[in-house]
Nucleic acid binder design. Structure first.
Length: 276
DNA sequence: GGCCAGGTTCTAC
DNA sequence: GTAGAACATGGC
């Protein structure tokens, strides 16, 4: 294991953790222990959140740099967001959300894991989603022991999830048929997850929505968190509430069209924070 | 014990 | 195309 350190400007692990885009982060003693796909790392920032430290195997360095979006344009996005917040005045809902969400980011997660995770998420709550995915990994993933002697589980592969009988007893509920069907499609090359990233947004969404169990909202989540489509704007119960209450005359989609997904993430975090 | 959860599908107008 | 019910499960 090695530690890699990156200078960051707008990066807040705690807010990302609380923003409903990850289900396999565990906060232990101030550090996040993260598993994603076949990989695992340990992450923490310094007190001022100016440096992010990633502890991982050297061959996984690039995976985690990509995962955390180390080279993505967040400085630019935040510059623009703060500019708009200033113009709108501090009383506007979005200005308040932007201020509260400073340091939010959208991760680049493996698309397969993202797809399965958000199929599980439908009509479900976050603690239960985490629990189900954890059990799924423990039962159907591989157990890996690191140099340091701690254990983690990889995310199951399509061949592990295509058999619906393997999915019983994990709390997946009625979504089991959606998951086994999706795994079967991937195994049979009926759907190519890797090309969704390069495809036009609408086209990729159309392909995802043709799969049972994936509707408008889940498709947007997969495209946003797993395919780098930052124009995706998943509307769940929380976002719906905000749109109806704060934007009865329409949301300024055009203004944020380059990074709508980041704005959605900021709103989701802020709205849930207000309700705690 | 009833309600709700990062929704989707199916059915009926 | 839109409203309403059904869907598994467990935390609160």
């Amino acid at each position: 294991m090695n530690m890699y350190t990156y200078k960051v400007k707008n990066f807040d692990l705690d807010k990302i953790y609380e923003s409903g885009q990850v289900f396999r982060w565990e906060l232990i003693g101030g550090n996040y222990f993260i598993s994603s796909g076949k990989n695992a790392c340990q992450v923490f920032t310094d007190k001022d959140k100016k440096y992010i430290n990633i502890i991982c195997e050297s061959q996984e360095k690039e995976f985690w740099e990509y995962y955390f979006g180390i080279n993505d344009n967040y400085n630019e996005y935040w510059r623009i967001l703060n500019l708009w917040a200033e113009r709108d005045g501090e009383d506007s809902y979005l200005s308040k959300a932007i201020k509260a969400g400073n340091g939010m980011g959208v991760l680049n997660q493996p698309v397969w894991e993202t797809a399965i995770s958000f199929i599980v998420s439908q009509n479900n709550n976050i603690p239960r989603i985490k629990n189900t995915i954890k059990k799924m990994c423990e039962k159907l993933g591989d157990c890996i022991e690191t140099d340091e002697g701690y254990f983690y589980y990889t995310f199951p592969e399509p061949q592990n999830l295509c058999n619906i009988e393997n999915l019983q007893g994990l709390g997946i509920g009625y979504r089991d048929k959606y998951i086994s069907d999706f795994a079967r499609r991937v195994l049979d090359n009926k759907i190519d997850l890797d090309v969704l990233r390069i495809m036009p947004f609408k086209e990729a969404k159309c392909i995802l929505k043709s799969c049972p169990g994936i509707g408008e909202k889940v498709a947007n989540c997969i495209l946003l968190y797993g395919c780098g489509h930052l124009e995706a704007f998943p509307v769940d119960t929380w976002i719906r509430r905000v749109l109806d209450r704060e934007f009865p005359n329409g949301f300024p989609y055009e203004r944020y069209s380059r990074f709508l997904g980041l704005v959605q993430q900021i709103i989701f975090y802020y709205e849930r924070m207000l309700n705690k």
